[in-house]
Amino acid sequence: MKWNIALMLSVMTLILSGCLYPNEQLSKNRVPNEVQLQTIQHAVNQYRESKQGLLPIKTKPSDTPIFQKYLLDFTALKQEGFITSIPGTAFENGGVYQYTLIYPEEDPQVKLIDLRIAQEVRTVQRQIDLYRDENLYPPFGEQLSEGVYKINYEKIGIDTPPRIPSPYSQSNLSLVMDTNGQVYVDYGPDLYEALNKYEHQYTEGDDIRFILPDNTPFVPAYSLPYTVQNGEPVITIDNPEN
C-alpha cells in the first residue's frame, strides 16, 4: 500500500511539473512586464551613449512601415554587455512580442509589437493573395474611405471574420485592405478612445497613431496612417511611409 501511495505521488509530481510549468512559462512570455521594458530602455540609452548616437536595431529596407522599421537587436545589446539575457516576453526568447523603437532620432523609446496580430494579418493576406492569383480584383467589400475597403471574406473562403485582439482594450479589431489587396488592422476604435482620453494637440493632417504608443507600451503595427477630422480618427493613405 505504501509503495502504491509513493508511486501515485511520484506520478502526480511528474504530471504537475510537466503541465504547470509550461503554462507558467507561457504566461510569463505573454504578459508585458514594465520592469523588462524599463530595463531594455535603460540598455538602449546606454548603448546609444556609448556608440555616439548609434542604436541597437536590425537593418530594414527604407520602405518598411514605421512601427516595424526599428526592431531591437538583442544580440548587439548582449555582446556589448548592456543586458545579460533577452526578456521572456520577446519573440527571440519564445515570447509573443517584438521590441521596437519609436522616435529613433530624437528620443528613442522602447515599445512592443503584438505578434498574435501579425499572425491573423498573415492568414488573411495569404487567402487574399491566393484569390488574386485567379481574379483580376481583390475581394472588395464595402468602401470605408478613399482607397480603403472592408474584406469580402466569403470570396476568400473564410466563414467568420477573424477577431483581432486589441492590445489597448478588451475589444476586437477589424481588418481592412487597400486597392491592391494589402491587409491592415483598423485601430479606429482604439484611436477614438485615445483621442478622448489623453491630452493631445493633433490637428487634421497629423498622423494621430502615435497617441497610442505615447500612452501605452504598444505600437499600432500593420496599420495605415490616420488623421483626425471633427474629433474622429480617419484613415488616410497619402503618407507613403505607413
Score class of each variant (00 low, 15 high):
T75S: 14
A76P: 02
L77K: 05
L77V: 10
K78H: 05
K78Y: 05
Q79I: 12
E80C: 05
E80Y: 05
G81A: 10
G81D: 08
F82D: 01
I83R: 08
T84Y: 08
T84C: 01
T84D: 14
I86M: 02
T89I: 15
E92L: 06
N93S: 14
G95Q: 01
V96I: 15
V96W: 00
V96A: 06
Y97I: 03
Y97A: 03
Y97D: 01
Q98S: 09
L101C: 08
Y103G: 02
P104A: 09
P104I: 06
E105T: 14
D107F: 14
P108C: 08
L112E: 02
L115V: 05
L115M: 14
I117M: 13
A118N: 11
Q119V: 03
Q119K: 13
V121L: 06
R122I: 12
R122P: 01
T123D: 10
Q127P: 00
Q127I: 00
I128W: 04
I128C: 04
D129A: 11
L130P: 00
Y131L: 02
Y131F: 15
R132V: 04
D133H: 06
E134Y: 12
E134K: 14
E134A: 10
E134N: 12
L136S: 12
Y137H: 09
P138R: 08
P138L: 05
P139D: 07
P139C: 08
F140P: 00
G141A: 05
E142D: 13
E142M: 13
Q143R: 14
L144E: 12
S145T: 15
S145G: 13
E146F: 10
G147K: 03
V148T: 12
Y149M: 06
K150Q: 11
N152Y: 04
N152E: 14
Y153N: 12
E154D: 13
E154I: 03
K155P: 02
G157W: 10
G157F: 10
G157L: 10
G157R: 07
I158Q: 07
D159V: 13
P162S: 10
P162D: 07
P162C: 07
R163I: 13
I164S: 03
I164E: 02
P165E: 14
P167Y: 11
Y168Q: 03
S169G: 09
Q170E: 15
N172H: 14
N172G: 06
N172I: 00
S174K: 13
L175A: 00
